[in-house]
Structure formats: structure tokens, C-alpha cells
Design a protein around this nucleic acid. Structure first.
Length: 432
DNA sequence: CTCGTGACGGTTGAA
DNA sequence: AGTTCAACCGTCACG
């Protein structure tokens, strides 16, 4: 009922949106799924990104536009004028921005308008962030890690052989009892039945299965592995590993983003955001081109991302620049406060900006204290959790909130403060 | 006016 | 190689 006919892609872009989107988002994709950072930084998860990865090169905005391939489509425009790719996650940069703005106290509805992202999406991202501490989208596609690993199948077979009359639920219990599986990865009764039927039905066969491929996946690392949410593994939290360098793919990678938030970083991000937005007025510039620019961005983003280290460096500059620009922060804030009209959406240059931020997340990995306040921190805590930075943010929050609320006609007035705060942000409490 | 929520159409990747 | 399935996505519209 609700979904009226309009459905997701609100307006079918005039452009042909058919074809598979090439993932302009690539960047996002990268970043998003799995360990974005990781991916980019180096650990490219094989296939997963494959498609995505390629695209970057492929779909440079230019190409997109060029329309060479006729249909490359890429985006659609939502009711707010924002460009999105149906089915694909928003770019990390935007996701990050959403969270940052929220932490600054900007209301979701305002964030939605500013970034031209549906409020539902903003709500979802913020909710997710509060729950998991991650701004990253979940893993798309694929299947959950198999629970019926060879080892499990082997045990099932053993149980069955030992007691041909055993019921699936009994097997299940035994798997748990024997520690073969834990409650999270124990196969369902139906799965066990299927195994009995398909794989063990013909008990005789020892099962090519066993030997065959054993996914490295140990039962123990079920989801998170793949669906990595940023849970900082309890271990990492110390920040030890990840903390240090973002450059490093590892776990840090994916989680990284959220945690990384280098305060400073965040600041820069914010700044970046601004710039990005402002600069880009782009979208505004040419709506028609809209996508392309975006794509570019993304592509750009990706790129930056890709070149792992180098990228980082590259990023930095941009970031810095951004910062510098931002010094003017006032504008930024003002922007925030004042809310640029829709045009704010940065379509194009973002990448520049983004990249910076993107790198940002990666790189700085400091203080985010996911450590204690892991992902799951309570919603309320969510923000607070961040500890230093976030805390700072929080602090700002109120203020900023005020700012936001006021949205006084004269952005300038307060905004500046806010920004400055932001700068300070990282350590407001501590430093200041 | 906000915001949470669910349906929808879409993409992705493993099986 | 192609299909199926299940996961996720963002948008939209409702309440």
C-alpha cells in the first residue's frame, strides 16, 4: 500500500536508468561494504570488489556522460534533488557527513535537506551509527557465512552414523553440546535435515566435502567477519592495532571509519563537507550533469582510496586544503546553520573533498574510543561513546543544536563559533 | 514539521 | 554460464 507506484526511484531520471548502474558509488561501495578502508588500502577482497573496483576506471564520469556505453546509468534523483544509485549505498563520505552533522547537533531533517538525502536514509544511517558505531553500510549481496562447514557436516555425519535414528534437532543440540558450533552458527534444524538428506543421505560417501574446500571460515567467526560492523573487536579497541594507522588495512580498515574519526579529522571532514558542498554548488550548476559529477566524485574517491598509501597522502592535501579553507569555517557553519538551499549538494567536486575525508577516516585513527563504547553502545550513548571527539561533538551538540535550531537568519553570527568549536572539536573537553 | 517505519524496486554475491 | 536466493541499499509515503 504504502509504497505507491512511485517507489524507490522516485523520479525516473530522464536519463535512462536502466542498465546496471555502474556504481558510481564505487567509492562508496568500496568503502562501504566490508572494510572499505581495507579494501582500498590494499586488501582488496577479491571478487567482491571486483566489479566495483573495475568500474572506477571504467566509469569515469566522463565516460558516463559520454554515454558511450549507452546506457550507463547511474543515478537517479530523489525528491530532494540528490543523486543516488538505487540499490547502492550512499558514499561513505556522505554517510560520514550525515553522522558528523548529526553530532554537531544538526537535526536529521536538516541534514536530509542539506545533503539531499532522504530523511529515511538519514534516519537509518544515524540509527545504525548509534547502534553499531559504524557509518558503514552492511555487506551487500552474498550469503551469510556458511554454517555448514565441512567440519560441521562431518560431525553431523558422525552423529548420524552413530545413531541413524537421531533427529535433526538432536544433532543440533549435540553440535552445541560438543562445541562444534555455538548458538550463533549452529545450523538450523532444517539445514541439518537438508544436510542429512543431501550430503549424508548417501552416507556411504565420505564426502568429498570434507576435504574439498574448507572455507577458512571458522565457525567462530561468523558474521562479523563478513558483516563487519565495526565492532571493534574487544581486542582492537585498545586502539592498539587499529589505532595506529589507518593506513593499515586490517581490521582497522573497515571499522575504521567510524572509529577513526579523528577528531581533527572529523573537523576536517566537516570542513571538507562544507567545501564540498559549497564548491559543488555544482550540482546546482548543472543538474543535468548531476550524475556525472557525482560519479566523478565517487570515482575520484575511489581512486584515492585505492592507492592505498599514496592515496592517503594524496588525501591529505586535499584535506588540508579543506581545512584551510575552512578556517573560514564560519561559512561552513553558517552554511549549516543557514542551510544552503538545496543546491548545496555537491555534486562534483566532492571527490576532492570527499577524498580527503575519506582518507581521513582512514588515516587518523586516533582517539576514537570505540574502545569502550563499542558499536553497540546504547543509542543515547552512541554519541557520547565516542569519547573524546565525540564527546566534544556532543558538547557541541547542544550548542550546535541551538545553532541549528536558531538557524538564525544571520548564519554568520553563531556559526563561526560553532565551527571554531569544531576545530577545537576534537578535544574540546580535553584541550580546551 | 519531524521522524520512525515498512514496502518497494534495485544491486550484489554466494550457492 | 545462468539462475536462484538472501542479504543490503535508498527512496518514498504513511502515520
Amino acid at each position: 500500500m504504502r509504497g505507491a507506484p512511485l517507489r524507490g526511484s522516485s523520479a525516473p531520471l530522464p536519463t535512462p536508468s536502466r542498465t546496471q548502474a555502474v556504481c558510481p558509488w564505487t567509492p562508496s561501495c568500496l568503502g562501504t561494504h566490508r572494510s572499505p578502508l581495507e579494501v582500498r588500502l590494499g586488501a582488496v577482497p577479491r571478487s567482491a570488489w571486483g566489479p566495483l573496483a573495475n568500474p572506477p576506471g571504467v566509469f569515469s564520469p566522463g565516460s558516463l556522460l559520454s554515454g558511450a556505453s549507452a546506457e550507463q546509468t547511474y543515478g537517479e534523483v530523489n525528491q530532494l534533488g540528490g543523486v543516488f544509485v538505487n540499490g547502492r549505498p550512499l558514499p561513505n563520505a556522505i554517510r560520514l557527513r550525515i553522522v558528523e552533522l548529526a553530532q554537531l547537533g544538526i537535526r536529521p531533517c536538516d541534514i536530509s535537506r542539506q545533503l539531499r538525502v532522504s530523511h529515511g536514509c538519514v534516519s537509518k544511517i544515524l540509527a545504525r551509527y548509534n547502534e553499531t558505531g559504524s557509518i558503514l553500510p552492511g555487506a551487500i549481496g552474498g550469503s551469510k557465512p556458511r554454517v555448514t562447514t565441512p567440519n560441521v557436516v562431518k560431525h553431523i555425519r558422525d552423529y548420524k552414523q552413530g545413531d541413524p535414528g537421531i533427529f535433526a534437532w538432536e544433532i543440533r543440540d549435540r553440535l552445541l553440546a560438543d562445541g562444534v558450533c555455538d548458538k550463533y552458527n549452529v545450523p538450523s534444524v532444517s539445514s541439518i535435515s537438508r544436510i542429512l538428506r543431501n550430503k549424508i543421505g548417501s552416507l556411504a560417501q565420505p564426502g568429498p566435502y570434507e576435504a574439498s574446500k574448507q572455507p577458512p571460515s571458522q565457525p567462530t567467526l561468523p558474521y562479523n567477519h563478513i558483516y563487519q560492523y565495526p565492532y571493534p573487536s574487544p581486542v582492537s579497541p585498545t586502539g592498539a592495532k587499529m589505532g595506529s594507522h589507518p593506513g593499515v588495512p586490517g581490521t582497522a580498515g573497515h571499522v575504521s571509519i567510524p572509529r577513526s574519526w579523528p577528531s581533527a579529522h572529523s573537523v576536517s571532514n566537516i570542513l571538507g563537507i562544507r567545501t564540498f558542498m559549497e564548491q559543488t554548488g555544482a550540482l546546482a550548476g548543472s543538474e543535468g550533469t548531476t550524475y556525472s559529477p557525482k560519479m566523478e566524485d565517487w570515482a575520484a574517491v575511489n581512486r584515492t582510496a585505492f592507492p592505498a598509501t599514496p592515496a592517503v597522502n594524496g588525501l591529505e592535501k586535499p584535506a588540508l586544503e579543506a581545512d584551510i579553507k575552512y578556517t573560514q569555517s564560519a561559512s561552513t557553519l553558517s552554511a549549516v546553520g543557514g542551510f544552503l538551499p538545496a543546491c548545496a549538494y555537491p555534486a562534483s567536486n566532492q571527490h576532492g573533498v570527499y577524498s580527503a575525508p575519506g582518507g581521513g577516516y582512514l588515516a587518523p585513527g586516533p582517539p576514537w574510543p570505540p574502545a569502550q563504547g563499542p558499536p553497540l553502545a546504547p543509542p543515547g550513548a552512541g554519541v557520547a561513546v565516542h569519547g573524546g571527539e565525540l564527546a566534544a561533538a556532543m558538547t557541541f551538540k547542544h550548542p550546535s543544536r541551538e545553532v541549528a535550531d536558531r538557524k538564525p537568519p544571520s548564519p554568520g553570527s553563531k556559526a563561526p563559533d560553532a565551527l571554531s568549536s569544531l576545530h577545537g572539536l576534537p578535544i574540546p573537553a580535553s584541550t580546551s
